[in-house]
């Protein structure tokens, strides 16, 4: 009886562990393993799956995800109220490489430690007084970062005057 009970307890753990290793096998780069080069670029993609620009555009609008529009003017006409906290993102695809854009989304504080822009791929354990439900998380998943980087690369047109 006792043995059965402890087995029953163990079973979900084993399944969970298998699940963990299964996702680990996909080889997302963990936040702590991201390699920053010259304090300016992250040349290596965070996942094996190429970023999807269309998904990236949705993430840039989504208030619970990238919410880029909160602070940046962007070529996204169907939404009003673009923020003016950060610079316009028109043309960033022409002005920065994918590696440079990736660093800026992952952690802009590498470039400017005083910046308001959140680091989208740094574990929240490094931050102060994080709400419990956001503990031990990143703002975006590795794939979401890649999707946004892919989208930003399409923004090659400069903002019309």
């Amino acid at each position: 009886m006792l043995k059965q009970k402890s087995l029953a307890k163990l079973l979900p753990l084993t399944v969970a562990a298998a699940g963990f290793f299964a996702t680990a096998a996909v080889a997302d780069v963990a936040p702590s393993d991201v390699v920053i080069v010259d304090d300016n670029e992250i040349p290596q993609a965070l996942t094996d799956t190429a970023g999807d620009a269309a998904k990236g555009r949705e993430l840039a609008v989504n208030r619970k995800k990238g919410n880029c529009l909160a602070c940046h003017v962007m070529p996204i006409d169907e939404h009003g109220f673009h923020g003016e906290v950060g610079p316009s993102l028109w043309g960033v695809g022409g002005n920065y490489s994918a590696a440079e854009l990736r660093l800026r989304v992952v952690n802009y504080k590498v470039l400017n430690e005083d910046v308001i822009m959140p680091a989208f791929y740094v574990n929240s354990n490094k931050m102060h007084r994080v709400l419990k439900k956001f503990e031990d998380k990143t703002l975006l998943s590795a794939q979401e970062v890649e999707d946004i980087v892919a989208y930003l690369q399409t923004l090659t047109e400069e903002q019309p005057d």
Binding site: P118, H128, V130, F134, L139
Partner: peptide, 17 residues
């Protein structure tokens, strides 16, 4: 002092911006 998952201080919005 920065705080929260967004890692912002009061000053980031209400002084700088």
């Amino acid at each position: 002092e920065r705080r929260g998952q967004l890692d912002m201080a009061c000053s980031h919005c209400h002084e700088d911006n």
